[in-house]
Nucleic acid binder design. Structure first.
Length: 294
DNA sequence: GCGGCAG
C-alpha cells in the first residue's frame, strides 16, 4: 500500500515540511497521498456502467485511477502508474483487434474459464491481469490488480464493446499528462531521519529528469545545508565512508593516535575528486522531497 | 438493464 494512490480522494490534510519538523519521514503510514491533486478526469458511459478515468498526482508521482460504477452503484477501482497505463492502452488495442476478429459467441464451444485472451502486466510489486472473458452476458475485459499473491484484489470489468472508447479516453489522458519526465516513476525508497547530538540528518530520495538522487540534509535550529548525491555514486560514497570507518576504529594498526591521517592519504584512491561534473548541482527542477523548504 | 466464479 505504499505507493500509488491511497484511495483517499479529496483528502484535505496537507502537511508542509513534513519530515523536517516531525522527523517522521521514516515509516510513517499516515502521510501517504497527501497533497493529492486531480489533474484531469474523464467519464465514460459504457452500457450500464460508468467509468471514471482520473489522472492524479501526489508527491510520489502521477497515476491514473480507473473507477467503475455499476448500475447498482457498486464501485470498484484500480490504480495504474502512467507507464502501466500506457502499457494497458497498447494491450487494449490488441484486445479490441482480437475481439473484433471473433465470431459470434458459440454456446456449443465455450472456452474453459471463458478466457479468450490474457495478458499480464507487472509494475513493481503489483500485477495486473487482463483477461478477455465471456459469459452468458457477453464478452468483457476483466482487469484485476493484485499486490501480493492470494492477497486482496481489485478489479474492473469493461464490456468488450467499450474497449475502443476506453482506449481512446486513456490515450487522450496519456497524451496530455504522460509527456515529460512524469512518464516513468519507479517507486523510490522512503526517506530516513537520523538524530545525533543536536543535529538532524535527513536522507531523502528523489528523482528528476536526470535520474534518482539522494539529498542528505543537515538541519539545526537555524541552519540547514544539504548535498545531493546522484544514485550512481552511492556505492563510492559508501566505500569511502566504510574506509574511514575501518581506519578510525583500528588505531592500533596504524599508530597510537587515531585519525591523524597516517594511512589515510590514499583513501578513496583520489575518487573524491570526481572526474565527472556535478550533474545535480544547481538543479531547481527536482521535486520536493519533503524536507526541502519551499 | 444488466454483469462478470483464481492467479
Amino acid at each position: 500500500m505504499s505507493d500509488l494512490g491511497s484511495g483517499d480522494e479529496g483528502s484535505s490534510s496537507q502537511k508542509y515540511h513534513q519530515g523536517m519538523e516531525q522527523g517522521s519521514s521514516e515509516y510513517d503510514p499516515g502521510q501517504q497521498g497527501q497533497v493529492e491533486q486531480e489533474l484531469a478526469t474523464k467519464m465514460l458511459q459504457i452500457q450500464s456502467k460508468r467509468f471514471y478515468l482520473d489522472v492524479k498526482q501526489n508527491r510520489r508521482g502521477r497515476f491514473i485511477k480507473v473507477a467503475e460504477i455499476g448500475a447498482d452503484g457498486r464501485r470498484s477501482q484500480i490504480f495504474l502508474a502512467l507507464s502501466t497505463a500506457a502499457e494497458f492502452r497498447d494491450h487494449l488495442s490488441a484486445f479490441s483487434d482480437f475481439y473484433s476478429s471473433l465470431g459470434p459467441p458459440n454456446p456449443d464451444n465455450v472456452p474453459e474459464d471463458g478466457k479468450l485472451k490474457s495478458e499480464m502486466m507487472i509494475k513493481d510489486n503489483r500485477r495486473y491481469y487482463l483477461d478477455l472473458k465471456e459469459n452468458s452476458r457477453g464478452r468483457f475485459l476483466r482487469v484485476s490488480q493484485t499486490i501480493t499473491r492470494g492477497g486482496p484484489r481489485s478489479q474492473v470489468a469493461i464490456p468488450a464493446q467499450g474497449m475502443i472508447e476506453f482506449r481512446d479516453a486513456l490515450t487522450d489522458l496519456l497524451d496530455e499528462f504522460s509527456t515529460d519526465e512524469h512518464a516513468y516513476k519507479p517507486d523510490l525508497p522512503e526517506g530516513r531521519h537520523m538524530h545525533v547530538d543536536n543535529k538532524n540528518f535527513y536522507f531523502d530520495i528523489g528523482q528528476n529528469n536526470r535520474g534518482v538522487y539522494m539529498r542528505i540534509s543537515e538541519v539545526k535550529t537555524n541552519f540547514r545545508t544539504a548535498i545531493t548525491v546522484p544514485e550512481k555514486s552511492w556505492p563510492r560514497f559508501r566505500d569511502i565512508l566504510a574506509d574511514y570507518c575501518d581506519k578510525i576504529k583500528q588505531p592500533s594498526t596504524t599508530g597510537t593516535v587515531p585519525g591523524t591521517g597516517t594511512g589515510q592519504a590514499n583513501v578513496g584512491g583520489g575518487g573524491i575528486s570526481s572526474d565527472q561534473p556535478h550533474p545535480l548541482v544547481g538543479n531547481n527542477t527536482q521535486q520536493d522531497t519533503g524536507t526541502s523548504l519551499k
